[in-house]
């Protein structure tokens, strides 16, 4: 295995039982991701991008083939080991934000650190830093119901980033946001990617996201159709729908 790769997937298949037979969601996937990548799994609904993201996130296991995340084989992990991998090294951002409704913004962001047994002072500082990254320092006492969609997703980003994971997995992070909020969120993630060298992997079919990613992995019917590294010119649109052309870029 190439030591610079933090994710290495070889000949990986994922099948689900369906009726009397099997449905193949992913077919012979071969991929590697290095540290600090800003990549997108792109494809229409049902192409297998969320399934692939879930396997990378150790929320699911492949049917066959090998998936190594940070030197750990996903297929060989117990439930507890998989939870520890997610706890220590992975951050998740969901389309529907998935904030815990009874907690405040501060408590939502603090939550992953509680699972990591940080001290109270360490947690406090880390949460304030994370809220500052996403520009929500003034909302720490608010509850999710009091936030807009854009603000909720920023809290989710802060929660994913607060423990400074190696990998952040974002499943359709802009699907419920308008154009302006989408660009704002993407700029923020791009900035964090560069400043903290966190690997970001998106599952998306949103054109707005595709404009930002530096690597585009196109999936169709569970197979990798194309894996391309994008140049700046490929990524930036001439018009921005409210997005500042270079704003927020580090």
């Amino acid at each position: 295995m190439d030591n610079s790769n933090i994710i290495q997937i070889e000949n990986m298949w994922k099948q689900f039982p369906m009726g009397g037979g099997k449905f193949t969601a992913l077919e012979n996937i071969n991929l590697t991701f290095g540290k600090g990548e800003f990549a997108g799994l792109v494809g229409p609904s049902g192409s297998g991008k969320t399934t692939l993201l879930n396997i990378i996130g150790s929320l699911d296991v492949p049917t066959k083939g090998s998936t190594i995340i940070l030197d750990k084989s996903i297929s060989d992990l117990t439930h507890k080991e998989a939870a520890q991998l997610r706890n220590h090294h992975l951050g998740f951002i969901f389309q529907t934000y998935n904030l815990l409704p009874v907690y405040t913004v501060f408590e939502n962001v603090e939550y992953p650190l509680l699972l990591l047994d940080y001290t109270s002072d360490e947690r406090h500082k880390a949460v304030l830093d994370a809220l500052e990254w996403v520009g929500l320092s003034d909302k720490e006492k608010s509850r999710p119901a009091q936030l807009s969609g854009g603000e909720s997703q920023r809290v989710a980003i802060a929660r994913a980033m607060v423990k400074r994971p190696e990998i952040v997995l974002a499943d359709e992070p802009t699907a419920n946001l308008d154009a302006e909020n989408s660009h704002h969120i993407l700029q923020m993630m791009e900035k964090l990617n560069k400043e903290l060298e966190t690997t970001f992997i998106f599952a998306t079919h949103d054109e707005k996201v595709i404009k930002y990613i530096r690597r585009k992995i196109s999936l169709l019917d569970g197979k990798i159709e194309k894996d391309e590294h994008l140049e700046m010119g490929d990524r930036r649109p001439e018009t921005g729908d409210g997005r500042p052309e270079t704003g927020g870029r580090a």
Partner: peptide, 16 residues
């Protein structure tokens, strides 16, 4: 259920 899934995604074991 979604909250339970979120807990697991954030690193909680099923036992927790």
């Amino acid at each position: 259920q979604r909250e339970i899934g979120t807990h697991m995604a954030l690193g909680m074991t099923r036992g927790q």
